[in-house]
Design a protein around this nucleic acid. Sequence first.
DNA 1: TTAGATGCAAAGCTTTTGCAGGATA
DNA 2: TATCCTGCAAAAGCTTTGCATCTAA
Lengths: 154, 154
Amino acid sequence: MDAAEQDAWRALATERVAGAGLRLGAARVEVIEFLAREGQCLLGASDIVARLREQGGRAGQASVYRILEELTALGLVRRLVDESGIARFEIAAPGSHHHHFIDDATGEVAPFSDPELERAVEAAAARAGFELSSHEIVLRGRRTGTRSAARSSR
Amino acid sequence: MDAAEQDAWRALATERVAGAGLRLGAARVEVIEFLAREGQCLLGASDIVARLREQGGRAGQASVYRILEELTALGLVRRLVDESGIARFEIAAPGSHHHHFIDDATGEVAPFSDPELERAVEAAAARAGFELSSHEIVLRGRRTGTRSAARSSR
DNA sequence: TTAGATGCAAAGCTTTTGCAGGATA
DNA sequence: TATCCTGCAAAAGCTTTGCATCTAA
């Protein structure tokens, strides 16, 4: 995600938050700014609280949890639960749809996207009689090195 | 899962547990018997403890958690974490590979399987340079009624 | 001015750990 | 008989809630 995309998400978030009748209080601004900067990868709420503190922020954890919940409801953030049951959040920018690959050896999480796989999911849903609102795919295994995945995170 | 499949899983579980050098203590037998009977669908640990108690069992929650962890490690049980971060377990019988569809309206979880989707996942992994050890797919949406899915659970 | 936002602290839940007593092979 | 297994109770995390105070609009 480059600077322009960060700005686009920040603008979208600000607009949608205001549009929902929510005020731009200190904590809300801190969280939105932080996510625009560093929210591409899956982050736990406690990570976010800690990073904000490091950066001089004053948002309390209750506010961060409440705000992440709101942003998720507004479709600005995607919330996933990892294997250990911890909620992890990442920006849901338009056109940023992707899934995750977890390396068995390192535990590292890497995002990937594959249009053909998306089509296959839609086709499978249609066959089963489902109309999809969302879907998640998690792959686990190891890299073969045949081709390196794009970005990695966490 | 019919009676024969239940028996097959119970036999496999008993054998593999013994093979791992674990003893068939009271709690372990209770959990294995219960899962053979009612473990096709995703169940939370607390559900299992409660049902066991209802059925006259004496297994404590610590034992149930420990046993579910062991069975998962032995590949006899599949562990998934739901949206709210709660671990849910189901029998991992040979040939029972499937994924889950969650109905937006009711929250109901229904298992489904689709060989073509499986092939698409393998193909996507190969394209990305991953060698898969496992994968999970969760679909969310609503039933169109065009075709009803097989069994439903939870 | 006033409904909404925030932070602290406490409560809630699921899951894990410590241990003394009990059972399996 | 020597391990391994169990259950109880307490501890540990993550997340949510209560509440008094502050603030954006």
